[in-house]
Design a protein around this nucleic acid. Structure first.
Lengths: 149, 149
DNA sequence: GATGAAACGTTGTGGTT
DNA sequence: AACCACAACGTTTCATC
């Protein structure tokens, strides 16, 4: 389970977390391997599930979603299951976790404006009690995973 | 600010959010453009800040961090500023936002185990009152941004 | 892992609308 | 301003060692 990731693989992961489009040839120059060797290591890490994918990060603000919020939900009796099915269809929801504690769900949502927020919250009220926190600023965003944590 | 993103660019963004390592040639085949045309459009979206970067997603679990948690912080008087400076150095913190409401900060953290969690919370107590929610499961993770939100 | 060759992709120039 | 065509160059991929 906790896979054997050597120093070379950590360097490769570091590069790919910083720029997923960097070529294997370029990574190979940095870490001292030939392109096929890098390709083989990357393929193996993909197969093992260490690398889960490569994603372009698209700006929320530049795509017209100036407002971000954290919303927690404390589901009503019998409403958690239907909510879990529905939440994957809400395009506003970027991240959603089931959690322990007084609330059952925490979501990170992106919205156009306060009208959009109001409209979104209205869709939630039948499933449970919500609490909304407007995001004022990003302090840390998608920090890379490193060797020494 | 809210940039002009046409249907073709949305298709390109869709592809790159699904697989940031897909070649411009391959994307071009899908959307009906030549590779240089795709490259030019992508370059422009990078320059405009629509595309913020390309990141490999590395599995937390496979790198030895089985435990994830949402931690909120209600900072003590005068402790918010020093905390904001420090939090960027905590490798456990994947995401951190400043928010409105009773708490000032919400963080998403990855940890090895409950001992690691205890150790991490101990580092926070001098900055404010914390509340910890263990993440039980991911319902939605890094959902792509789409045209019609 | 390395090497070398073939297939593929990227990038720059020039030209078209 | 956006795109295509073509060619030079770099990258990936496969065989082989």
């Amino acid at each position: 389970m906790n896979s054997n990731i050597d120093a070379l693989n950590w360097k490769i992961l570091e590069s790919l977390q910083a720029n997923a489009r960097e070529s294997f040839a370029s990574i190979g120059r940095k870490v001292g391997l030939t392109p096929p060797a890098v390709a083989e290591r990357v393929k193996k890490m993909e197969d093992l599930g260490i690398i889960e994918g490569y994603k372009a990060k698209v700006s929320h603000a530049k795509t017209g979603h100036q407002l971000k919020a954290i919303i927690t939900l404390r589901a009503f009796m019998g409403k958690l299951k239907p909510f879990l099915a529905l939440v994957t269809t809400f395009k506003e929801v970027v991240n959603c976790y089931r959690i322990t504690g007084n609330e059952n769900i925490v979501m990170e949502v992106v919205l156009k404006d306060q009208f959009h927020l109001e409209e979104f919250i209205d869709k939630l009220i039948q499933y449970g009690e919500t609490r909304t926190h407007i995001i004022l600023s990003n302090v840390v965003t998608n920090a890379p995973i490193g060797r020494k944590l």
